[in-house]
Design a protein around this nucleic acid. Structure first.
Length: 431
DNA sequence: TCTGGGGTCCTAGGACCC
DNA sequence: TCTGGGGTCCTAGGACCC
């Protein structure tokens, strides 16, 4: 690798601006130019249009406060089916330029375009810009785009010049850009590492790359921080995980109950609901679990859990619940108020190649994993289980986009619109 | 914001073995 | 009890991400 070249490797990161709110504005032109927020179904803001942000609204604000700050705000329930369709379209467009695309989350992806200048007859910067233009034209939303030698640097770059920015970050500009990048804004370093680094006098990404390998060791920074350090210096160590989405290693369902409870049977029934939902997920993934863990969370946020192996691989609740009941008293103490319960199914195994889905139809393994990739992406972003996604997806393939349907369906309550929200401009038929 | 939900990866340390 | 040395496997918990 020639580290002196502008792009020893050329990695592009695409990040949809205000993704959920932008999708809503793309779906319905009447929302454009207006303050829009999503998350109405939960009473907590998940995304804000630029217009809402300009008025001073921000994520984490209670809905009441949002309405006070901008009285004209349009509050929408999240339409996760639509978001996942836009995400799939984003991945598909990127893949028309290079097969090496990582579907990182519902509103982000990475593309490796190394060595493709001749194929496209363009420079790296022109290719990245061409993909950006295509995404924006096709989806009707803008993207923050960064081009750099590593994933971590591409992430740094795509955050700049928001919204709709394009930031090329060749090797020779790394130090300049990292000088104005706070340590807390670096992907891969969280609050814990950030605090430690600041206490050691490292405030910017530039400060960080000035440190030596020995210094990292001396202060107890290990692999994740070292990988990030190398990536920031321009050495690619994180690969793109492209190709078929990996099967999940674990599946988890947790829920907070309000108000907290001390009632033994009530708490057990909550756990039972968790198990049911988790089993539905593994079944739809065509998998079975050989182990599980469950926990209760007290009002003080302490966790009490048990982890157990299952004698046979299971994908249905009854026997799992028998095991849980047998050991329930190890985590439950009477008189203590609990605020949440959760179950994680682990040691997941894949069953046969063809499995029935939730609706009793047989679907090919490849098609099923497609659906689940989208579901995973939604969950990865905001944890909202969209149990009907599978059915909605298959309904979609028969629909046509049309101006008329766009207008007709635009103002249906999104929560109730379900498959109808699939009539989306720009997209056509999505598989 | 008295703190939601769903994941992955990494590491330290204990158990166990020769 | 003045006591090695080395290896593997597993689990709990932390850190991080969207």
């Amino acid at each position: 690798m020639d580290k002196s070249a502008p792009y020893p490797r050329a990695i592009v990161h695409f990040d949809g601006d205000s993704f959920f709110a932008s999708v809503e504005q793309s779906k319905d032109w009447r929302l454009r130019g207006k303050p829009v927020v999503t998350g109405g179904e939960r009473g907590a803001v998940t995304s804000l249009s630029v217009e809402a942000k300009k008025l001073g609204a921000h994520r984490g604000m209670p809905m009441q406060e949002i309405r006070r700050v901008c009285p004209d705000v349009i509050v929408l329930a999240g339409d996760y089916t639509a978001y996942s369709i836009y995400a799939k379209r984003m991945y598909a467009i990127a893949k028309t330029f290079t097969p090496l695309v990582e579907e990182y989350s519902i509103d982000e992806c990475f593309a490796d375009i190394t060595g493709l200048e001749e194929v496209h007859g363009m420079s790296y910067e022109e290719i990245a810009h061409a993909i950006k233009a295509k995404l924006e034209e096709s989806l009707g939303i803008t993207f923050g785009v960064g081009l750099a030698p590593t994933k971590t640097l591409a992430k740094v770059a795509s955050k700049r010049n928001k919204p709709a920015g394009f930031t090329p970050l060749p090797t020779e500009k790394i130090e300049e850009v990292l000088s104005s990048t706070e340590i807390y804004d670096i992907w891969g370093l969280g609050g814990a590492s950030g605090n430690r680094l600041c206490s050691l006098g490292v405030f910017s990404a530039f400060d960080y790359i000035q440190k030596t390998d020995a210094w990292l060791t001396e202060h107890g920074f290990v692999k994740p921080q070292r990988d990030t350090w190398l990536e920031l210096k321009g050495y690619p160590v994180l690969g793109l995980s492209s190709g078929a989405h990996a099967k999940p290693h674990s599946v988890m369902v947790t829920r907070t109950f309000t108000p907290p409870s001390t009632d033994r049977e009530y708490i057990f029934s909550q756990l039972s609901k968790n198990v049911e939902a988790a089993c539905a997920k593994v079944r739809r993934a065509g998998m079975k679990a050989r182990a599980l863990s469950f926990y209760l969370k007290t009002q003080e946020f302490t966790y009490h859990g048990v982890q157990l192996d299952l004698p046979t691989a299971l994908d249905t609740p009854p026997r799992m619940l028998a095991h849980i009941r047998a050991r329930f008293n190890e985590v439950y103490a009477s008189g203590i108020p609990y605020r949440a319960s959760g179950v994680t199914l682990r040691a997941l195994e894949t069953e046969g190649a063809i499995t029935p889905d939730l609706f009793g139809e047989f679907v090919a393994e490849s098609e099923k994993s497609e659906t689940f990739r989208a579901l995973d992406a939604v969950n990865k972003k905001f944890g909202r289980t969209t149990m009907y996604l599978g059915s909605s997806m298959s309904a979609l393939t028969h629909k046509e986009a049309s101006y008329r349907s766009r207008v007709v369906h635009a103002f249906l309550p999104t929560g109730a619109s379900g498959g109808k929200s699939l009539n989306i401009p720009f997209l056509g038929t999505v598989h």
